[in-house]
Design a protein around this nucleic acid. Structure first.
Length: 465
RNA sequence: GGCGCCAUAGCCAAGUGGUAAGGCACGGGUCUGCAACACCCUCACCCCCAGUUCAAGUCUGGGUGGCGCCUCCA
């Protein structure tokens, strides 16, 4: 498989450190609020990458952290009058609710900063011993000028970074680009004991420490949003490589932004939609569909209109899925005919084109196109008179490919409430008697309850609105 | 100022130098009591200019337009 590596700025063939295994780390949320759709993108993208790698037979260890020690959490706790821990616990819970609705699988582990203070302190100590960190009155900073490769990920020289620095020049720091590894305790803030006194870790060190603990010194893939390239990921490299003296991550993957009216969506700009808000109007699987319909590195605009397009597209997949279930139940023939066997063999073309697309830097847009082509083929060629063997072949391939993307994976409810079933039966009787007025009444009545009826050649079908 | 990304139909969006995937919307049709689903048909000379090449959306140079990072941010 080929992956675009931010470090080398080109697509590279993916070669894992250890054959058959992949170690990947992706920066998770700071849990002080519901996450927004911009946050959702990397969660969905790297979940999809993980699913595809597993589909390819890799044993994937996927780590996504929770930042539960942070200024914003402290601020929130003061606002709400609860402890920082209560804030983070609440939003971790809420994270999983939204992630589940987005069909994001649980990572192998979701480590928390608060549970890795020891590892963080140990790492800072090592950096201090190596002359890469300095302590000023209980604040410990990383000295970027002592790390030769600083800037290699963001392609910035130290001089350029300094020239453009808009950082407040702190008297304390030796260079404006130095960043905090350990922050001295302030009144009312959570703190831990350390060799430098009471305090808490800086933002960047957590990812280095947790990645090292759960995945080792060198990992295969590190992912995140493009806005993390600088300074967060650049600093992670400085910390991890400075500490361990080994390459930190072999492949750096960065997803593009979500835009609103061509402008970046972000919490700081205030132009964001939380996933929770969107869930009021759409099934969140639609958001997943929307994300995967574009390539992960390209910026995408977000709007109600575009979500509706994704919703209709996703409906098409579900219609096909449920039709296959229906046909399987109603087919009388077991074994495929000679013609059907040839047709079954021909289906593998869709698997091939799907895999080719995914192997090309996770081209989910192209991969989805393959699925739609498969759907058209299935819709055209399968009917009640097809054999179960042929229908099953189509169903299995469809499920195989959609599972990789985490789309169209929900099963249909098998039964409706009895009173609804009886209304459908009554409507059928009315139609038979050409009492279309009554039939339409019932259809409207059910629509008001969120049930859409469709009279197909094979009989009445229903779906949820 | 430094670094980087993007420009393909009404709306999205793929595209390995060889005569433009897919989805949504629109139009025509088959099916159908109607609607919906499904299927068939229709729907693009790829921002501009120049160059390289037998051949360029795809490479090179120059424009124009849009966006991002260099500060917390996915």
């Amino acid at each position: 498989m080929k992956l675009y590596n931010t470090l080398t700025q080109q697509k590279e063939t993916f070669v894992p450190i250890e054959e058959g295994k992949v170690k990947m780390y992706s920066c998770g949320p700071t849990v002080y609020n519901y996450f927004h759709i911009g946050n959702a993108r990397p969660f969905i993208v790297f979940d999809t990458l993980r699913r595809f790698l597993e589909y390819q037979g890799y044993q994937v260890t996927f780590i996504q952290n929770f930042t539960d020690v942070d200024d914003k959490i402290i601020k929130r706790s003061l606002e709400e009058g609860i402890s920082p821990q209560e804030v983070s616990e609440k939003y971790i819970e809420e994270y999983f609710k939204d992630a589940d609705a987005l069909l994001i699988k649980r990572a192998t582990a979701h480590p928390k900063v608060s549970e890795h203070i020891e590892e963080i302190i140990r790492m800072i100590k090592t950096l201090e011993e190596k002359g890469l960190a300095y302590n000023i009155d209980g604040n410990v900073y990383y000295s970027v000028e002592h790390f030769a490769d600083y800037g290699k990920l963001s392609k910035q020289s130290l001089e350029d970074l300094k020239a453009g620095a808009r950082v407040d020049v702190s008297d304390e720091k030796k260079s404006p680009l130095d960043f905090a590894l350990w922050k001295k305790k302030k009144d009312g803030e959570p703190y831990w004991e350390s060799p430098w006194g009471q305090g808490r870790p800086g933002w960047h060190i957590e990812c280095s420490a947790m990645s090292k603990k759960h995945l080792g010194d060198t990992i295969d893939i590190h992912g995140g949003g493009q806005d993390l390239i600088f300074p967060h990921h650049e600093n992670e490299i400085a910390q991890s490589e400075g500490c361990c003296g080994k390459p930190f991550a072999n492949y750096w993957l960065h997803n593009g932004y979500i835009n609103i009216n061509n402008e970046k969506m972000s919490k700081s700009k205030g132009n964001f939609f939380t996933v929770r808000d969107i869930a009021k109007h759409f099934d969140l699987e639609v958001v997943r569909m929307f994300m995967l319909m574009a390539h992960y590195r390209s910026p995408v605009n977000f709007s109600d209109e575009l979500l509706k397009q994704a919703e209709t597209a996703l409906d098409r997949l579900y219609t096909a899925k449920y039709q296959l279930d229906y046909l399987l139940e109603n087919s009388a023939l077991e074994t495929a005919s000679a013609d059907e066997k040839i047709w079954i063999d021909s289906l593998s073309q869709y698997r091939h084109s799907f895999i080719n697309a995914m192997e090309d830097d996770l081209n989910t847009a192209d991969a989805i196109a393959s699925i739609f082509e498969l759907v058209r083929n299935l819709n055209s060629n399968l009917s009640e008179s097809s054999s179960k063997e042929a229908i099953m072949a189509g169903k299995k391939l469809f499920a195989e490919l959609t599972d990789v993307l985490g789309l169209a994976v929900k099963e249909k409810e098998s039964k409706l409430e009895e009173n609804i079933e009886s209304l459908i039966a009554e409507r059928q009787a009315a139609r038979k008697n050409k009492d279309f007025k009554r039939a339409d009444e019932i259809r409207d009545q059910l629509l008001a309850q969120g049930i859409i009826l469709e009279d197909t050649r094979e009989g009445v079908k229903w779906k949820r609105a």
